[in-house]
Design a protein around this nucleic acid. Structure first.
Lengths: 210, 210
DNA sequence: TCCCTAATGGGAAGCAAGTTCCGTTAAGAT
DNA sequence: ATCTTAACGGAACTTGCTTCCCATTAGGGA
């Protein structure tokens, strides 16, 4: 009975029964290769065969463990969500959000991360699993920056009852809009404007939760 | 000489020498079928063969005139940009921008147009021609709403020198961010918040062009 | 109205993508 | 240290998107 359940678990998701050593190494190599492939060819040009070759892994392994380009990107997103970087604490809300806006712009205009985010957004638009993974990624990212808004509320910089997450989203939104939707150039002035506008709207009480 | 140049033009881009009648009908049918296919299968599932069949057109025609899924979407975007709808004029900036936010939310949550925009954003992330076309689409859309901000500036509702386009972008940004990036649900409360925050930031002078 | 040829349409061939089979390697329990 | 079997890797196979070819249709100038 127990023997059967172990077999079943293994046949459903390879890599879960023996996650150590080789399995972990293969995953790391494949995700690294996936990211490189996305930088070069975008989501549309993602090819499981080439990813396998680049990772130095048999293509059968990639097809078996992931099965599709979308699943590969979804796993990459879960991996990216785990690597969190700490938020700023400059002492003022405007300083913190400016740091956030600067970081977002830095990331989106980065020659390596820019294409990755482009691809990841495209993947989420094509596949529901990717959409969920991308949602999870931003949920953690937003959660990391919530404290600096809550500190500002404690200092009285924004009204009590301000939805911290909504303020953080308001900073990213204009930058991502230019980056992924209207496809306009993204300058440092846009980052400054995004942070400033978010603070102004927050102080005016537009982000107080219902 | 002139004869040759006409031949050359024809061989480069089919449909340019005899644009009337059948050619125009084929384009309309193909773009209509493309939109339907995007609604059902997204950009990743876009298949030139099936588009041709659905349009009641030979598949060779689609492959010859467009050649790729990305080119098909790019042409659809150019077609969409031409069909402009007039902006609101309620008498106040907040009223106009609320109408705009409401319209954007309406469009993105529409069971037909939502998937189309999803697909179009994905296509732009995959292909440079689509990216340019998408940029052009939003350039015209933003341009349509610029007058209502300029009227507000004339009434003294926002500082002189306010970048009207930037205000319009500020309204759409949070809605598109939720829709395409963070993948969160999009409610009417988000539309109200987006319009209100944009007005507050504009009045605070954060959108005054350099 | 007639003619020239741009543009379309169907089918067959080519090619690259994904899928499956089966032998080999090494993780982890005893 | 040994054994069981999860997980990997190479190669053959299959599917389906794309392109080529040539016959057919119809736009637009004379």
């Amino acid at each position: 009975m127990e023997h059967n359940s172990r077999l079943e678990a293994a046949s459903l998701t390879p890599g879960t029964v023996r996650p150590g050593g080789r399995t972990a190494k293969v995953r790391a190599a494949v995700l690294e290769a996936t990211q490189e492939a996305l930088v070069e060819g975008g989501f549309h040009g993602l090819n499981l065969d080439r990813v396998a070759a680049r990772a130095g892994v048999g293509k059968t392994t990639v097809y078996r463990r992931w099965g599709s380009a979308a699943a590969l990107v979804a796993d990459l997103l879960r991996d990216m969500a785990e690597q969190s970087l700490p938020a700023a604490d400059t002492g003022s809300l405007e300083g913190d959000l400016l740091a956030n806006a600067h970081l977002v712009r830095q990331t989106l205009t980065d020659p390596r991360m820019g294409p990755v985010f482009q691809a990841v957004i495209a993947a989420a638009a094509c596949d529901e699993e990717c959409a969920t993974a991308l949602n999870g990624f931003y949920a953690t990212r937003i959660h990391e920056w919530v404290p600096c808004v809550e500190r500002a509320a404690g200092r009285g910089e924004v009204p009590a009852g301000t939805d911290a997450g909504e303020v953080v989203r308001a900073v990213s939104a204009p930058l991502y809009y230019r980056f992924a939707v209207s496809r306009e150039p993204l300058g440092e002035a846009d980052a400054v404007r995004a942070a400033g506008a978010a603070v102004a709207a927050a102080k005016a009480g537009w982000f107080t939760g219902n």
